[in-house]
Design a protein around this nucleic acid. Structure first.
Lengths: 193, 193
DNA sequence: CGCGGGATAGACAGAACTGTCTGTTCGTGG
DNA sequence: CCACGAACAGACAGTTCTGTCTATCCCGCG
């Protein structure tokens, strides 16, 4: 039986590996981080690593899944939900969340795009990244439908251009990128009302 | 004397290296392409390669420079210039150029962002990429000033969010990304008039 | 007490990476 | 015709990468 991570206790080997690779992959991409470094910083034996993750690819896939749970859902969706009453407010609040995120020490880029660019869109990891980006877009699309906007799917594609563009701008150092994007986003809502 | 590439003649070794690495780096990034592959596909001896480019880093820097000449200036700036009479038309025409580019076989992504994400913003290659992105932004900013828009610098930062976001969307497979971005761009111009 | 599962450290194989070096060949200008 | 520079082929060193394997250890459970 795999204990579901009792808080306070020492995390299991698998959990340590995932936590370490999350930190490293999110900030430095997957090509620039070797399994040896993950292993060393997880304080785990090599055999243990390969027992849990038969190949580096499997680890990256697990990382992308976790990224979706923690970032897409835990940060973007959940936090923006809290900050608004209506679907429309909650859409715009995404950029308020981004604004805080860009300014925080936790800002670590957008892993799905990083992996996509590193691996290319025909590689399995690129494909997985594209899927995760589609899942993120689905959240936007769903809210757009709730808000009664027309053509939620097309709306979400435009909206995501603003999300991606602002994150890249922030990575370059533009700390106000979220505010710029929010202004354009407000306009986009008007266009789709 | 280094002959300036007489057309028809066999390109010099240096030129072959640059042409090969341009193709490879633009599509696959820099971490995923080794110097051995560049050397083999350039039909060049290893010593010749290291004579012209003392390290891989130097080659990547040369690649980024060429990317600026051929893509930033040769494609984005020059082509959009042709397609409009006024500064404002020429701004919007950027996305018409993108639209064609996204649909062509030559579409090979946005190298400056790829390198930035691969290397991180504190690495020399990341720094160089940020500079090249700033140079691209300067073109937008200059046109915005010509068009009499207010705050051309801030305008260009918002504009670039649309450019980056649409290119990433196209890499994911959204062929209409340029048209979406253009619609938002037209709105942005209104806001800054 | 003893056994088994999961973890440990770390050697090892084989490939790929960057960069160095040797020795040869070829074309051109003096 | 010869000398020189540039490019050639390719061996080599040293590191790093992924993945395998051996051998040991520790802890909980029957």
């Amino acid at each position: 039986m795999q204990a579901p991570e009792t808080p306070g206790a020492t995390p299991t080997a698998r959990e340590r590996i995932l936590a370490t690779s999350y930190r490293l992959f999110a900030r430095r991409g997957v090509l620039g981080v070797g399994v040896d470094e993950v292993i060393e910083r997880s304080h785990v034996a090599k055999a243990t690593f390969y027992k849990h993750f038969p190949s580096k690819n499997d680890l990256v896939l697990a990382f992308l899944d976790r990224r979706e749970r923690e970032w897409t859902v835990g940060l973007v969706e959940a936090e923006s939900h809290k900050r608004g009453e209506t679907a429309e407010e909650r859409l715009l609040a995404i950029f308020d969340v981004f604004d805080e995120w860009f300014r925080s020490d936790d800002f670590d880029g957008i892993a799905f795009i990083t992996v996509l660019l590193e691996m290319g869109k025909s590689h399995p990891l690129g494909q997985a990244s594209i899927q995760h980006l589609a899942n993120l877009r689905a959240i936007v699309s769903k809210r757009a439908a709730e808000a009664g906007l027309r053509d939620p799917e097309q709306f979400a594609r435009s909206w995501q251009i603003l999300m991606k563009g602002s994150i890249i701008a922030a990575l370059e150092g533009d700390l106000d990128a979220a505010q710029r994007a929010k202004a354009m986003a407000a306009n986009l809502i008007e266009q789709f009302r």
